[in-house]
Design a binder for these strands. Sequence first.
RNA 1: GCGCCCAUAGCUCAACCGGAUAGAGCAUCCGCCUUCUAAGCGGACGGUUGCAGGUUCGAGUCCUGCUGGGCGCGCCA
Length: 611
Amino acid sequence: MSDLKRGLSEAVAAAFAAAGLPAELGRVTPSDRPDLADFQCNGALPASKAAKRNPREIAEEVACHLAGDPRLASVEIAGPGFINLRVSDAALSERAGEIAADPRLGAEPVAEPRRVLIDYGGPNVAKPMHVGHLRSSIIGESLKRIYRFRGDTVVGDAHFGDWGYQMGLLIGAVMDEDADIRAMMEDLNAKSDITPQDEAATFAVLDGKITLADLDRLYPLAAARGKTEPDYRDRARKLTAELQGRKPGYFLLWKHFAKVTKVALERDFHALGVDFDLWKGESDVDELIEPMVADLEAKGLLVDDQGARIVHVAGPNETKKKKLPDGTVVVVPSPDPLLVVSSEGSAMYGTTDLATILDRKNTFDPHHVLYAVDQRQADHFEIVFRAAYLAGYAERGSLEHVGFGTMNGTDGKPFKTREGGVLKLNDMIVMTRDKARERLHEADLGSELDPAAFEDTANKVAVAALKFADLQNFRGTSYVFDLDRFSSFEGKTGPYLLYQAVRVKSVLRKAAEAGAQAGPIIVSEPAERDLVLLLDAFDQALIDAYDKKAPNFIAEHAYKLAQAFSKFYAACPILSAEPAVKASRLTLAQTTLRQLEQALDLLGISAPERM
RNA sequence: GCGCCCAUAGCUCAACCGGAUAGAGCAUCCGCCUUCUAAGCGGACGGUUGCAGGUUCGAGUCCUGCUGGGCGCGCCA
């Protein structure tokens, strides 16, 4: 079973071949001119160049070979040599029936399923998630669902940033602020063995003293001091190295940081309908780092440089000019080398990333790893990937950075609240939910629902608004985050999609109450034709989204499908139609709903029963 | 200084190996609820695709240069 586009491509390819021309010219696409055709093939234009013949003449010849195809209502040549195809109502009816009977709603699985790992590029421990984290969560989640739906085995890993310099900064800041904790740390660090009782006692104290709000308050101050005060920075680096060396007190303090952070993260992710298969972090590969460094050394990749140890990843002819602080310009390798061990002996961001690649090879052994991380880290990933390939930790080309743009405010600059701070993700979710309730009341929707169901609907509307606003944009470009616009709920929005889904559900409920039976789909009206053509286009949207790692193709399809349904809904009465037509339209409505909900699910959005 | 990305309607965004008349939503204006949920549907208005060249039968799409904007450039992650 294949979609109309693919089926027709095969027929047109055969027609090109029959005319003595390359079969690959027979590629059929949806028509740019719906007034003239359903599908088109432009192959005669490039063919004319190679064959040195008039393109219209070629198109005519190809059209002759297509003449007997029962699926085609018409084949016409237009313009310089476009082959315009119109599909017969019978063929559309048949295809609609196939989709209706298909649990996968007309979407083909991949030929060879792969093991794919999606790295969400980690929120950092000790920092609450802010709007900037929205994108990696929802893009990563959507990609995971898209890949899974096409048949791959997919694992999503949160990959927390929990093992670097920021932990050293925080340990120092907390001890500076609280002398009791400092004393406790010194006491614990002096011990050679930590008992479970020590651990429990330590956590009992820390639980009452250090909250996420404290960490959130201390971290920016510490980070700022680290930038301007070399002594402060050096101490933080030393503390980082000591933490990584498992100094007992610091290690327990770090565990506490991780714990309070995770509670908040789980709440935020849960509210967004995002879940991870693995809650791993940088710290999980800590014990792999030492043997990995030894391995890199044994492979001759590791070299000393200014007290640090690095891996050169640039090829022999890859250089760039670089201006030194003193103004002289030198030629250096490009990309920059990977810094593996700092002069303090600490593992760096790239070190843990590299070790994580090795860890995944040893455990999940993925064919493909996608990093759903901000575009700004493109250079970093290029360096890490090259190092991984050089060291043999991953198959060349198997690692891919799926970068996305930043989320800006209406002023075009990175998003900030009115007070100039970062908007916490949780606050944003709460705001959007409030807005959803307000809008539901305004439109007098959901008034018959009980409070719990109403709350559930408001939450679904809020999540749909946020996610669709993000996912309708191509991930690579930055976009403007405008809460007022997103929560207006009109036009091309998540709530519009939910509204259409709910309308279908309502009709189907009424049909069931009246005992109406669904039956074979018989396409005749223009609105029915358009709806079936869209149902048929699902597979291509899925392929585009999969190949380009771009959920916006699914978002676009879902929107067009909802729109086509809304037109069908306005033009073609269902319940009042005569029995055969009613049966057909019920199946069509049912199938549309199923595909729409499937597409929404791939975006991480779910529709309520009523609103 | 070097490198990467971006520039499309008043605003926010699309556009399938280069193809016909560059599409949506918002905003503005007009029309449609005694019929299945009007958060809807129909229509109008809105464009020299940043600028200048080039390749091509054909360029928003490819190449070169320029202008404007964003981001990155080993001991943060």
